[in-house]
Structure formats: structure tokens, C-alpha cells
């Protein structure tokens, strides 16, 4: 299991190649990449700053991956999340899950993203023509996490 929080961009192809390590037991890799959009809530977005809680962020992400491994028959999971200054088109987050079969890999990948969105301590501040503003949490993200049926806080 690997969890990384970093300012630098990542190469998703190279990350997946390194992550699968020529393991012949892997029959499926499901991956997700989140990107910076150029608009949010009807306003043009010129860029954003991603703040996080060093220490807790890594602990929270590792905990989410452990929950995914307990719930699905997957081999491993990789999470990379960027912080700092980001612009539209930039990559923000990558999740990759390896398994013997696709079903568990797809489900675990989506679960990790849904939980990351609602439990990992990151905050976005975006720049618009009206100035900078903190991005508001979405109830749709809470609903997406809740459908997995586990309590979000222990």
C-alpha cells in the first residue's frame, strides 16, 4: 500500500507500471485521476490552492485504503494527492487499485475516492475574477460516501 501527498505532478503511466511490478496475479487495474476544472459553481476558476493537515492526511488516506482492503478482495491500492498551487488542466489526485478481477478493483477505487472526498483533511481555495474563496463541501459528496453503508466517523 502506498499513500503520497506531494506538491509535484505525477506520471500516471509510470506510477501504474511501478505499482503493478510485473505481478502475474494481477488481472485488473482500476484507476481514477481527478483534474482541476476551469469553472466551479458558475464562475471561471483561474487556479486553486490546496491546503492539508500534514500527518493526519497520510493517516486518513492509509485508513481508507485499509478499509477498502478489508471490504474487497483486492491486491493493493495506491493514492497520490497533490497540495499547493494548482491550475486548470493540472492533475490533483490519482487512485489505482489492483486485483485478480475487475469487479472488486472498480468498486474499491470508487470507494476510496468517495471516502477521500469526505474524510481526508484537504481544503481547496479557488481563485476567481471576484477574488479567492474557500470551496464549499457538497452534500452530494456526503451522499456518495454514505451509500457504501459504513459510518464516516468512528
Amino acid at each position: 500500500m502506498a499513500v503520497r501527498v506531494q506538491r509535484e505532478d505525477f506520471d500516471s503511466g509510470a506510477e501504474i507500471a511501478a505499482f503493478r511490478r510485473a505481478d502475474p496475479g494481477i488481472g485488473a487495474i482500476a484507476s481514477f485521476i481527478g483534474l482541476v476544472r476551469d469553472a466551479n459553481d458558475g464562475d471561471a476558476v483561474a487556479g486553486m490552492t490546496l491546503e492539508h493537515y500534514p500527518g493526519m492526511t497520510e493517516k486518513a488516506l492509509a485508513g481508507i485504503v485499509e478499509q477498502a482492503k478489508a471490504r474487497w478482495d483486492i491486491i493493493d491500492a495506491l493514492v497520490i494527492h497533490r497540495v499547493g498551487e494548482l491550475k486548470p488542466l493540472d492533475q490533483i489526485v490519482m487512485v489505482a487499485v489492483t486485483g485478480a478481477h475487475r469487479g472488486a478493483a472498480f468498486a474499491a477505487c470508487e470507494f476510496i475516492m468517495d471516502y477521500l472526498k469526505t474524510q481526508a483533511p484537504f481544503w481547496k481555495r479557488e481563485q476567481t475574477a471576484q477574488g479567492t474563496r474557500w470551496v464549499e463541501a457538497r452534500t452530494s459528496d456526503d451522499q456518495a460516501a454514505a451509500r457504501w453503508g459504513e459510518p464516516q466517523a468512528k
Partner: peptide, 24 residues
């Protein structure tokens, strides 16, 4: 660790207050 209102707090703890998270 994410806490609730009734989570115990004692000397030496590190407690953080923050808005709902918006990563990903």
C-alpha cells in the same frame, strides 16, 4: 483521527478544528 462531540479529550492531545473537507 476524526472525532465526534463525545470523543474524550485529555492533556497532551492534539486537537484540530476545521471546515468540512474539500479534497479530491
Amino acid at each position: 483521527d476524526i472525532a465526534r462531540e463525545d470523543t474524550p479529550v485529555k492533556a497532551g492531545d492534539e486537537i484540530a478544528f476545521f471546515p468540512p473537507v474539500t479534497g479530491g
